Simulated scan of single mutants.
Amino acid sequence: MAAIFSGGERPGRFRLDPRTKLCLLFIGNITVLLSPAIHYELLLVASILLLGLLCGVGRYCLKMTVVYFLLAAVQLLGTRYLDGFLQIFLVTFAVFLRKVFPCAMLGGILIATTRVNEFMAAMHRLRIPRSVAVPLAVTLRYFPMIKEEWKHVCDAMNMRGIGVSVWRFLQKPLKTTECIYVPILISAAKLADELAAAAVTRGIDNPQPRTCLQQIGFGMADGICIGWFLLLVMINLWGKGGGS
């Protein structure tokens, strides 16, 4: 059970401090909100893709980037060639998801490259209350486990002849929804209990100051990343003010 709570760090050229990743996630959200046009977002997405490649999660970021461009294409084609309710529905849906993807990419980098012990040590140095740090640490390990459960659910559905695809959903929407959500909800409740038990076993609720075998601290890579993302914010502010 303790192994479930272990981190999933991946090797890469950049070794960023967990506090830097949280800062980049915060700055990325601000950049998306301030983005005056899609080409400003493209610069942000390209920066996140480069960061993911350097941190060792390039495959994940490449997949997310492809989906991002597909959504941008849906928005562009829908605006040009559709009209009426269908245009409003598709374009609005594509824009909403497109805005979420850069932040999702940064969140995925944070989850995939940060061990729980590093994260807790960073929270301790930031003097974050345990009532906030502990749920965040459990959540950090919750998403990878849900991803594994999703694969198991898909395998089980394929064995029963119920594939997970858009066409299957259109054929049998209620059956497909039931076969997906019921196992996911049941496994989510079970995983929450297991993660909580594993966290207590590792002494996550120990009131004493935490120590970490792996040293964390700010370096040149942290400064470069934060500086570049702050520059993106300034570029978006400049564009929003009419500088473009």
Rank of each mutant, 00 (worst) to 15 (best):
E148H: 11
L34S: 12
I235R: 02
T20F: 01
Y60C: 02
Y181L: 12
P207S: 01
T65S: 10
E118D: 15
K63P: 06
T79V: 04
G241Q: 08
Y68L: 08
T113R: 00
I184G: 02
F119H: 04
L70H: 10
V45R: 00
L34A: 13
I38K: 12
L33R: 09
L33G: 14
I109V: 13
V74H: 03
G7E: 07
L213N: 15
L43W: 05
N236K: 13
V134C: 03
G12C: 04
L54N: 07
L62Q: 03
A189S: 14
L232M: 14
D222V: 03
I128H: 00
H39Q: 11
V164L: 10
Y68R: 02
A37N: 11
L90Q: 07
L24R: 00
A198M: 12
K63Y: 12
G108R: 08
K99A: 15
Q87A: 12
N236C: 09
T92A: 15
G108K: 09
E178C: 04
R80E: 14
F14R: 02
T177A: 10
M1F: 14
R115A: 12
F96A: 11
R130H: 08
F143Y: 05
D83Y: 12
G219N: 09
L185T: 11
A112Y: 02
A199N: 09
V138P: 00
M234H: 07
W238Y: 15
G203Y: 01
S244G: 15
G227W: 01
L237N: 00
T177Q: 06
C55D: 11
M157F: 07
V66G: 08
R13W: 14
L76P: 02
A196H: 08
M1N: 12
T139P: 03
F69D: 04
A37I: 01
R141K: 11
R13E: 15
L90W: 14
P129G: 04
I224T: 02
L106C: 04
V91M: 11
M120Q: 03
R210Y: 06
F14Q: 00
F143I: 07
W228T: 00
L90R: 06
V45E: 03
L185W: 10
P183M: 08
Y40D: 03
F93D: 07
L185D: 10
K151V: 06
R59E: 11
G241C: 10
Q87W: 01
D83A: 14
L140D: 03
P209E: 12
F119A: 09
S165R: 02
K190S: 13
M123V: 03
V67A: 13
E194R: 15
A137G: 07
D155V: 06
M220H: 10
L82D: 07
K240C: 04
T20E: 03
D205F: 09
L22V: 04
F93R: 02
P36Q: 04
I88Y: 13
T114P: 10
R127P: 08
E149Q: 14
A197L: 11
V134T: 05
T177E: 02
G52R: 01
P207I: 01
A197P: 02
L140V: 05
Y142I: 05
Q208W: 09
A199T: 06
L43K: 10
L195I: 06
L90I: 10
V74L: 12
K147C: 07
R15H: 11
A199R: 03
I38T: 15
C61H: 01
G223T: 01
